[in-house]
Design a protein around this nucleic acid. Structure first.
Lengths: 317, 317
DNA sequence: GGGATTGAGGACAGATCCTGACCTAAATAG
DNA sequence: CTATTTAGGTCAGGATCTGTCCTCAATCCC
């Protein structure tokens, strides 16, 4: 039966690689009779994959989108592209899919052949995040932590506290949480015998110890809630409100909707609101818009702008 | 034997969803005897998927990375994350995997269930590209064009020439090429009866006509070469060389390696080289580094910096 | 070290399924 | 209208699958 199964997979793979396939070409490729191809197509349909067919000359088979995801059959290059894409998605921190991206990445990396993993690593060193975007998180850390947490394995890492002191931790990872542009791990600290949240960018060399544990119940609704309550007060977040000297429509064309909101003030100006943890980053984002503007708040933003303007002037001198 | 095949797929899916699986749990889930599970594992191994097994208590099965990619079995959320990740990867224009990312995206979108496609579209509207990054390319255009080109189907679109005049085109798409931060389509223009290259960001509503064509031979080594020769002279590219007043090591920590090269000049300064088509974008990239700097070349960069500094000063006033 | 747990795999029998061959029907492009 | 292409019924021989039963081997824990 491994013959039939692998042939079905190959068939699915062919149907994903090109859209239209005449039956006899499939038969040739899979080295079976046309009748068997028809039966295989029937089987795929039974399994829920919608294979369309057209009769007549220029007819053939075609895999449509169905109601469920079929298994994806990727070649090496595509697998790499997906791995790299997921890494950037995990750091995008704009769309709210970061955690899922990491989960998918863990799944993919588990089965990614070694030679491909090396290539992904090489490409991955091309960091996409902007220099000013604050502390960056190593995607390899993310996947290592997510894998340990998925498989209920203890995790060991070095951790630098807020005050700068270093320590080594051994924890039972519960879940990985993305908030704003930061990643947190919620875990039971085995040394301290209590729940803790850790910032991933403060970790050093996280690695599974291989020791399994039985998951504990988190004393909170969910991990995200736990992180929020435990960093309450800390995140010093800034909300910027600036007036742009440009029509709202024109601004809207250039500003991604998730980067803030635009409200028209009059025919020639509009108000732009956006928030961030990092003032420097906030200043740049506004400067990059390419329009003249006036800062309404916060006042701290003005200082950053002044500093930036000075630096540019010095350079342009 | 759709039963055995679908069971094998389910088994593969389970093995991808978690790392360790005891045999009897698999047997329960798949509603077969333990013996059949062992046989299924054997079958997977025959198909080339390396399934490890450990005996003893706490033993079980585990899917390792092999030498070839197994079919990826994704849940809905993961499929969305991958689609979004690939979209950003297609636009990243830094790593050299954009074209593969588009190919993978075409494959995925072909089978992406409708409800998921809607969600991807909603998320996709959160444009990630930076506002200043120049003309953005709609990923839906990219996939539409890539699909037509993969399937040898004619493509129709509106095109705005360099001089601003609009026209409608019907072409036989040959391939999609990514150069720098721009996308080009190499195609046989049916109206003009000749080869042409089109910039994707100048296209309007590209769509397959459904008409099939037989691929022609391109009069060049490959599509990338053809694009390069046909836009020779046009791309007005700038190479910047600036001196940063900061030690090379410190800069290296903040600058992604693909965004330019860093050469130490002395203990306290270094030289940063980077290139781009867009001067404004170039200026920002340097300003964002967060270090004092001096521009060596090009002179045009100075003007942009001055303009930017002025704008910031006005805002900070 | 001993016992319990878990995977490995041979053998068997009955049921099921697969394949290719052959044939007819229906749809479609030119 | 004709050639092409998928749809699918039927048949027969061979291959495959499954569960049961059993014996081994590796590993963990007491």
């Amino acid at each position: 039966m491994t013959q039939t199964s692998s042939r079905l997979l190959k068939l699915l793979s062919l149907l994903q690689a090109r859209r239209d396939w005449p039956g006899n070409e499939l038969a040739e490729r899979l080295e079976v009779s046309g009748r068997t191809i028809r039966r295989d197509v029937e089987r795929l349909r039974e399994l829920g994959y919608p294979v369309e067919s057209l009769t007549g000359p220029a007819g053939g088979y075609r895999l449509r989108a169905g109601s469920a995801m079929p298994p994806l059959l990727l070649d090496d290059e595509e697998a790499i592209a997906i791995a790299v894409g997921l890494r950037t998605a995990a750091r995008a921190s704009v769309t709210g899919i970061e955690e899922t991206a990491v989960r998918a990445l863990v799944k993919l990396e588990q089965v990614l052949p070694a030679h491909l993993r090396r290539r992904v690593g090489a490409l991955g060193s091309a960091t996409f995040t902007l220099p000013m975007a604050g502390p960056t998180v190593d995607p390899q850390h993310l996947t290592a932590i997510a894998a340990a947490s998925r498989d209920s394995e203890c995790l060991r890492f070095g951790y630098r506290r807020r005050d700068g002191t270093d320590s080594r931790r051994e924890v039972e990872p519960h879940s990985l949480v993305n908030l704003g542009r930061r990643w947190y791990l919620v875990a039971w600290d085995r040394g301290r015998q209590d729940w803790r949240t850790f910032r991933i960018d403060r970790m050093a060399r996280p690695a599974s110890t291989g020791v399994r544990f039985t998951p504990r119940r988190l004393p909170a609704k969910d991990a995200a809630a736990y992180v929020e309550q435990s960093i309450a007060g800390a995140p010093n977040r800034y909300e910027a409100r600036v007036t742009l000297l440009a029509p709202a429509e024109e601004v809207a064309k250039r500003v991604p909707s998730h980067w803030g909101t635009i409200e028209p003030l009059d025919a020639r100006t509009c108000e732009y609101r956006t928030g961030d943890d990092d003032l420097g980053w906030l200043a740049l984002r506004i400067a990059m818009l390419g329009f003249d503007f006036e800062v309404q708040e916060p006042p701290e933003l003005l200082e950053h702008l002044r500093a930036l303007a000075l630096r540019l002037e010095r350079a342009a001198a």
